[in-house]
Nucleic acid binder design. Structure first.
Lengths: 230, 230
DNA sequence: TGGAGTTATAATGTCGACACTATAATGGAA
DNA sequence: TTCCATTATAGTGTCGACATTATAACTCCA
């Protein structure tokens, strides 16, 4: 599942960790609406835990960039904003570009095989027009390459911190928002560069891919706004 | 001062925040040695605060990547490792490269003036052989460009999270470790590209600069190890 | 003597209560 | 009626105590 793939906790042993995972899922899925203020007593009661544990969980959510806190005022779920989405794409372009470069240098043949398997799955799902699961396959693709970089800190910064935000936005934009065929093609190019161990080219292609996604998202958002205004 | 420049808290209003800043400084400066395990009761007593506040501060330190925690075992200050330092350089290359590109697009003329003032200061300190303060000027240079990107999340990820690590390592490598003249020259090249609003070139030059720093650090570390072994 | 099992100790996780702060509600004066 | 001051309320920050877990010390047996 797409949630567990980037999870930092194998099995949450402590209450605060369980709570953290619960809340994270609830936020990403939209059970807790974006921008909502968190009432510590209320939430603690509804989950049947103490405020202390809840506060610890909120602290972790803050690290994932899913909530913001102000002293003496409280925490609230992050909101949706187009400029922020663009910012995230810019960061992804830089970091995942580097990840692709390193992956070309460091991935094992076995890992590249698994990467090709993901492409195969993507192809199948496009042929069957399974729009809903194509987003999972897209995440799997990007995660595999990030993992392949073997740069542990880079992996953590992307998979743990930034990709929670990616999921947050993706979930709220999922309606007919994919450019699967084009993305699939770009994915293939990246993998072929990795297979040739051409790090420079892998980085260039990955950056192009993410930039294209960004431009597409921007266009769609502008169209949506225009539609709402008209 | 170099510490406050990237500080996320204007004035720490809460005990936990004050404690966080205190501990962060102590770790970066080496007052608390690298790799040391944290005893919550002990630290709380020595700072005269409750364990709750201390735990909150430790949580924040964990976000800054300065301590690591394991459930039911505890927290310890991060250790020093050459591979990790290389990882950080790789990430900086990607992210600061992007920052330089964006800075070329978004920096105001006034900000560029301030950038040139930093270069001027750097030049002066080289002429006066003030090795100790050249590291501060170097940090100021990089921070200014990162700020100039105007990408708020990028700024936060670099200045708040990654650069604490940079300081951590820098403080432990500071003995005769600078390549100031070369770095100064590379800084000038980056700024000239920004002045010309050439984002592509600014990114290339910044990446080159950071890669050169990385190679230099690696060489110095290998020499040090060889020296210790011989 | 060495090692496994057991006990003892210290540390972390969790909780409920109190203090202080911010916000909402209320009341009074212009 | 409107605005400001005051009070009331809810919420966050902080603390000390208890429960649970990991580690160290110890004992007993082979």
């Amino acid at each position: 599942m797409a949630f567990s793939s980037a999870c930092k906790l194998q099995d949450p042993v402590t209450i605060a960790d369980k709570l953290f995972l619960d809340l994270r899922r609830a936020i990403l899925v939209g059970e807790i609406p974006a921008g909502k203020k968190i009432s510590e007593p209320e939430l603690a009661a509804s989950y049947g835990v103490s405020r202390g544990s809840l506060r610890e969980a909120i602290g972790k959510l803050e690290n994932c960039n899913l909530v913001t806190r102000k002293p003496n005022i409280g925490a609230r779920i992050i909101g949706f904003s187009t400029p922020q989405l663009i910012e995230i794409y810019q960061i992804r372009e830089a970091m995942e570009g580097m990840a692709a470069r390193l992956a070309a240098e460091n991935m094992s043949e076995e890992e590249i095989d698994r990467l090709n398997a993901i492409l195969e799955r993507h192809k199948l799902e496009i042929e069957q027009h399974q729009g809903y699961s194509q987003e999972d396959v897209d995440l799997d693709f990007h995660f595999s390459i990030i993992q392949g970089s073997k740069n542990i800190r880079l992996i953590r910064m992307l998979c743990q911190d930034l990709y929670d935000l990616v999921r947050f936005y993706r979930f709220r934009l999922k309606s007919g928002f994919h450019r699967s065929e084009q993305a699939f093609h770009e994915h293939n190019l990246v993998v072929s560069a990795i297979e040739r161990r051409d790090g420079e080219m892998a980085e260039t292609l990955m950056r192009h891919h993410i930039r294209a996604s960004r431009d597409y998202a921007r266009k769609m958002l502008e169209a949506t706004v225009a539609q709402n205004e008209g």
